[in-house]
Design a binder for these strands. Structure first.
Lengths: 331, 331
DNA sequence: GAGGTGACGTCACATTTGTGATGTCCGGAC
DNA sequence: GTCCGGACATCACAAATGTGACGTCACCTC
């Protein structure tokens, strides 16, 4: 025990169940997520090594620590190389459809494959990410320490209008936490009411610095949104269901980075696009790696548009989407 | 090295990546799920302790081992006690709606709370379970060793007609694997074409023995199905979408144990009920513990019918369902 | 075939973790 | 006040695990 050690020793005598649980979580996080030894973390928390050890045992028994062994989803190398050749992709990752899995586990399998691919890239000092359901699922599967010291920056606006939507604006933080590294979020709405507001925001030095960081990122990773009412962009309140249906009628096939695109990959509605803040469609394809992740039904069209337009050079998708993209009937 | 040790030593020299991954999974499963020491499991697999240790390290780094720290979902004690009093439940578990969580994480939170509740019951030598999405999610969250040596028996038919439906018929196995214990499944379709077939099957000694085991279980655990086309009972092909819509028109509010019930908790269609194999509606409520789990939208009605009719004496549900049940406007 | 290279096996040893024995404190019962 | 039980602290020790050094082997290059 050094000089600073006598800050607070925890008396476990009369701790409430909640306080105890909170301690269990603290111990488990430090042990499993930060790879500290029980001795070290005990010192930090003002516990003894034995208290920490027993707390950890309780945490495991209570189910606070969940350990799962997941054999990595097999891939479909034939489809992958066909996609790569056909669309000039740097890399394609295709997850087979797994006979008896349900929609959700297929979605998870894609997210896992994406996380694995990303983790396998080695150190990436600066990574741009978008947010959304898909991206959150990917973040959840990134292994601890996949990219130590990385800077993770959001490349599109992240403040939601409607609160109880899917919890999205912590995607960057999730990416950063598991790296471990730092997250920079873009604290503005994804879509504004007027283009002038967007320009004004972009000129603000603070915002400009963040946008610039995103533009400098050699790697961007983003999910693709389908034209469905449960898309995050609608759920967050930026675009109404009616408005989205109207966009669909005018040729929109989905969204990437908060921007609706048509089958050619161009902005489906230039006015709407001008009100959208963040990395532009003309910029995204120019990265070293532009990783697009498409998981779930209804995303084949937006995936097709993205690869055709060169917005992505790495595509992660499920087998159905891959097959659809390779289908010759689509001109 | 004892006498029997020289069965097969694994030469790791020229192993393919896949074989290596397979070994990683084997090591990880034994280490984390079966609590074996590296030395023991290495002997079993024909590896050295050091090989096993390194393989385990690789498995963690590769994301094959996923460790998550989940602070247990807070509960809503006020709603719980109101439900208990109002419906005479032995216990109610209510998971608050969590402001910014999406549908899926709310579903997971309920499953987790259910798993926790079940694990907290202590040793239950014989447990009856149904199958379905909800039950599978619960099984996924049961801690290793929650009920050592338990016998888990399916109380309704489990052979699916349509294959690529949600992977449900391994629910009992999942429950048993984490116990660890033995699973007995009921290898017949949930719903048959004719009541006579059901009776014939029930008289078969093998089937009768399994059904009897289920009837003797002091504890049954089951999920509740809503009247939606994505309900597992429809996805599995037992009931058509049209047929289900028709049932809804005639008063069905959902299903438990594969049986559609009306608002009073009685079989919505006696003929259909007579073709359904497994624990009957008149039997389910007579257990020591009859645990019903309702997670997700559209399940308030079936939950209400179940508690009213006394089919469950323990209810696990999300906050929205709880509030709906307590709503005085419903007579 | 010599030499180099890198992946792997083997092992001694340090570190980390688990466990049971024993002591101590607290609160309640009498 | 005294006694008692249980929850917890503390510790010594055993067991399990991680790590670096070094040797060996297969394979490649020249």
């Amino acid at each position: 025990m050094a000089a600073e050690a006598i800050d607070r020793d925890i008396q476990m005598r009369g701790l409430s169940a909640e306080q105890r649980e909170h301690l269990m979580v603290q111990v488990a996080k430090r042990y499993y997520e930060q790879d500290m030894t029980l001795g070290d973390l005990a010192a930090e928390l003002g516990l003894t090594r034995w208290q920490a050890s027993r707390l950890l045992g309780e945490a495991r028994a209570a189910g606070i620590v969940e350990i799962r062994i997941v054999p990595r989803a097999p891939r479909a190398p034939d489809l992958e190389s066909r996609l790569e050749r056909r669309f000039g992709l740097r890399e394609a990752v295709v997850v087979p459809a797994g006979e008896e899995d349900d929609e959700r586990s297929r979605f998870d399998a894609v997210a896992r494959a994406a996380a694995r691919f990303i983790a396998g890239l080695g150190r990436l000092p600066l990574v741009g990410v978008s947010w959304g359901r898909t991206m959150n699922a990917v973040a959840a599967h990134l292994p601890q320490g996949w990219n130590e010291g990385a800077e993770v920056v959001l490349v599109n606006g992240a403040m939601n209008i409607r609160m109880p939507a899917t919890r999205t604006n912590n995607t960057a933080e999730l990416f950063a936490r598991s790296a471990p590294g730092a997250a920079t979020i873009l604290p503005v709405p994804a879509i504004l009411g007027r283009a002038a507001t967007r320009r004004a925001l972009e000129e603000d030095p603070t915002i400009a610095a963040i946008l610039d960081l995103g533009r400098r990122a050699p790697v961007v990773i983003f999910g693709m949104g389908a034209m469905t009412p449960d898309s995050v962009i609608v759920q967050s309140g930026f675009v109404g269901e009616v408005e989205q249906a109207d966009l669909a009628r005018r040729g929109a096939v989905g969204d990437i980075l908060g921007r609706y695109i048509d089958a050619t990959g161009r902005a489906a509605d230039p006015d709407l696009d001008a009100r959208t803040i963040g990395l532009g469609l003309d910029e995204v394809g120019r990265r070293e790696l532009s990783i697009g992740i498409a998981a779930g039904p209804g995303k084949a069209a937006v995936a097709r548009a993205s690869v055709r337009a060169g917005h992505v050079n790495v595509l992660v998708a499920d087998e159905r989407i891959a097959l659809s993209l390779l289908d010759e009937d689509h001109p």
